[in-house]
Structures are given as C-alpha cells and as structure tokens.
C-alpha cells in the first residue's frame, strides 16, 4: 500500500462532493439542518417540561441519556454507512450476537474482563468486515447483504447461547461498564456514548477516511476514477460500523447484566431513524455525527416524554412515526430549495 498518491488526490475528491451547489451553501445548509434538529430537541424538552412537572429533573434526564446510549452508539456507526449511500440492517441482531459472544468469552470461557470485552467488539467488527466484503467485492446490494447478516446474526446468537440468556452475575465489574459512575450521577454508558461520538466526529470530519466516506456517497464512480480504492474504503466503513455495533453489544449486555439472545430485532430501525432525523441523507454524501447524536436524543426525549405523560403505547408509535416523516420532509424541502 503506498498511501502518498492517495493523500494527494484527496482534496480533489473532496471538491467533487459539494460541487453541485457550492461549498459555502453546503456548509450553511449543514449548519441550518443541525440547528433545526437542535431547535426541535429544545422545543420538545420545553414542551414536556410544561406538560409534566416530573419531566425536567436530573434523575429523569439521566434516565433519558441512559436510554439513548445503545441506540445512539448503533446510530453513530451506521451514520458512516448511510453517508456512503448504503444501509446496515444487521446492527440490531449483530449487537445481540456481540453481547452473546461477550457472554461466551466471560462466563463460559472465564476469560479476563478486558479480553472478553475486546472479543465482543471484535465480533461486531468481524460482522461489519464480512458485510463490507459482500458489498464491495461481491457487489451485493447493501440492503440484501446486511439483511442476510441480520438473519445470520440472529440465528447464531440463538444457537451459540443455546436459546438461553447468559448472566454476568459472577463477572466482577462487568455491570459497571454501563452502570458505574466515573462521573458522579452519570452512568458510564452515557460517557461511552459521548466518547464514541467524539471519536466518530473526528473520524468523519478530520481524516482521509471521513473524506472518502463522503466522496463515495456523493459519487462512487467518480471517486473510484480519481484513483481512490473505493472497495477497500467501503470495507473499512462497514467494519467501523460493525465495531460500533460491538460497542453497543457490550453496553447493552452490561446494562442488563446479561446477554439476552432473543432481543435486537427493531433496534436497527430505531438507529436508522435517529440518523435520518439528524439530517443525514439516505441518498448518501451528506450527514453529520452531531446531527445523529441530536437525532438519537430527539427519539429518546420523545419516547420518555410520552411515557411520562402516560400516553398509550400505541399512540407513542404513531407520534414517533409522524416525527420521522416531518424530519425527512423538511429535509427534502430544504434540499429542493437549495437546489434552485
């Protein structure tokens, strides 16, 4: 691998992405989009605070943040995938498989804590890597490749666990990964979410990898023709998403102090919804980590607030669905406007 010519070409690739509408407009649009999402979040918090006197308290905010952790971490990883114009449906059950493997390493094999956790992360990364190979080398559509992986991960989680939960009760310190409080009052799972968000932000906006992620999403063919090994970078993108899935697996296992092999289906859609609400385009080439974090917070503030107000579960789903529709609609509206 000689990296230097690739680096030289990078700025050119960067320019192809926003060329349609001009860099300044893109920049403004991105800011507007984030401030809109952020504004929505603030409005929701104010609304629920007025609607219920029990909403705005530190203990509830801490609950909301903790409830955001798992979906938020999944959403961070999948932001990269969606920016390339792809999709990853395997993150929900993949998370479950990573949790189960962590259980196998720590409980069945009695490996040291750090080894077991790294094993769980590696499980996620490996699934992501296989997704990447299937999509970049075998040219399978991302939807199909990751749908297959979703089923494979679901099946393997059940087979490997023997269709039984694995309890970590004997593993010293495992639960603290999510529920300990290095910062008093703030569960570690939330800290992990924020640290991972910073890492994801740096990866996406400050590295070559990030620039190629955008470039592939804007125009994969042009990116390839300009000399970038798009296949290699696509594999890296899916592997990174898989690694985040692994983190989510460890965090959910630690929070439940058990690996529950039957859950996970549906988590991928919540994560994808958070990414979309955060302004990342399903068409690729556009998105931000900040947006995803805000999107995930909007989802959990909304769900928590509706629960606090004792709104029926059925109606909660309806409201969340409507919010997703509005988010995507305003996004397309903005795009249309800035295109003219």
């Amino acid at each position: 691998m000689n990296a230097s010519p690739v680096i030289e070409k990078a700025p050119k690739v960067g320019e192809t992405a926003p060329a349609k509408s001009g860099t300044a407009v893109t920049f403004l649009r991105a800011k507007l989009q984030q401030s809109l999402a952020f504004g929505t979040l603030i409005v929701l918090v104010i609304f629920f605070s007025i609607a219920s006197s029990n909403f705005f308290s530190w203990s509830n905010i801490s609950s909301i943040l903790l409830a955001t952790a798992v979906i938020g971490i999944l959403a961070l990883g999948t932001t990269f995938v969606i920016i390339t114009g792809g999709i990853d449906l395997s993150i929900g059950t993949g998370m479950t498989l990573a949790a189960v493997m962590t259980g196998i390493f720590l409980v069945n094999m009695q490996l040291p804590l750090i080894v077991g956790v790294l094993g769980g992360l590696a499980t996620g990364a490996l699934m992501g890597f296989i997704n990447g190979v299937n999509i970049a080398i075998l040219k399978l559509p991302p939807f199909i490749a990751t749908l297959a992986m979703m089923l494979i991960a679901q099946g393997l989680a059940l087979v490997i666990s023997g269709v039984r939960p694995i309890y970590f009760s004997g593993v010293e310190g495992f639960k603290n990964i999510s529920l300990g409080t290095i910062i008093p009052g703030l569960p570690n799972a939330v800290l992990i979410l924020f640290l991972l968000a910073i890492v994801a932000y740096l990866l996406l906006s400050k590295t070559l990898f990030g620039r190629y992620t955008f470039a592939i999403g804007s125009n994969e063919e042009a990116t390839r023709l300009s000399g970038v090994n798009t296949r290699k970078w696509l594999i890296v993108v899916y592997t990174v998403a898989g690694l985040f899935t692994g983190f989510a697996g460890v965090v959910i296992a630690a929070r439940l102090d058990s690996a529950q092999p039957q859950i996970g289906v549906g988590y991928e859609l919540q994560a994808i919804a958070a990414v979309i609400i955060g302004g990342t385009s399903l068409l690729g080439g556009r998105g931000s980590i900040m947006g995803t974090v805000i999107g995930a917070l909007i989802m959990s503030v909304l769900i928590n607030g509706l629960r606090i107000m004792s709104i029926q579960t059925e109606w909660q789903n309806v409201v969340v669905g409507i919010v997703i529709l509005i988010a995507v609609f305003t996004d397309t509206l903005r795009q249309r406007r800035s295109a003219t």
Binding site: S52, N54, S63, N304, R307, I308, S310
Partner: peptide, 8 residues
C-alpha cells in the same frame, strides 16, 4: 423508569 418518574 418513566413510570416511577411520572408517579412519585
């Protein structure tokens, strides 16, 4: 958790 929060 939301229930416990909402109904002290």
């Amino acid at each position: 958790k939301a229930m416990i929060q909402a109904h002290p």
